[in-house]
Amino acid sequence: MANGSCDGCGRPVTVTGGIANLWTFGEESEGSAMTLELADGTSHLLCYPCIEALPDEGEPTATDIERLEQVDEETSRLDVL
């Protein structure tokens, strides 16, 4: 698994994929983040709490990613402008 930090809130994350995870099975194979390619052409590594905090209406954009912040270990939210 690759390690990094969430582009939204900055918490440490793990990402599955690549040759290192070819034969990895079980709980540890899921990782804690995904890279999303947005409609505005940007891509971002986001933890699952940040993905859940993205707006449901319309397509998320880089501006929405910039507004994400960490609340605690399990939740994120959009910063109020």
Results as ranks from 00 to 15, higher is better:
Met1Lys: 09
Met1Thr: 10
Met1Pro: 12
Asn3Ser: 13
Ser5His: 11
Asp7Tyr: 00
Gly8Lys: 02
Gly8Trp: 02
Cys9Arg: 00
Ala20Phe: 07
Ala20Leu: 09
Asn21His: 13
Asn21Met: 15
Leu22Cys: 00
Leu22Ser: 06
Trp23Ser: 06
Gly26Ser: 02
Glu27Ile: 01
Glu27Gly: 05
Glu28Ala: 06
Ser29Glu: 08
Ser29Cys: 10
Met34Gly: 07
Thr35Phe: 08
Leu36Arg: 11
Leu38Arg: 06
Ala39His: 07
Asp40Gly: 04
Gly41Thr: 02
Gly41Asn: 05
Ser43Asn: 12
Ser43Pro: 01
His44Trp: 15
Leu45Pro: 02
Cys47Ser: 02
Cys47Asn: 01
Cys47Asp: 09
Tyr48Met: 12
Pro49Ile: 01
Cys50Gly: 04
Ile51Ala: 01
Ala53Thr: 05
Leu54Ala: 06
Pro55Met: 13
Asp56Phe: 12
Glu57Pro: 03
Asp64Met: 01
Ile65His: 01
Ile65Ala: 03
Glu66Cys: 04
Arg67Gly: 05
Leu68Ile: 05
Glu73Cys: 03
Glu74Ile: 13
Glu74Val: 12
Thr75Ile: 04
Ser76Val: 03
Arg77Leu: 09
Leu78Tyr: 11
Asp79Ser: 15
Asp79Asn: 12
Leu81Ser: 13
Leu81Phe: 11
Leu81Ala: 14
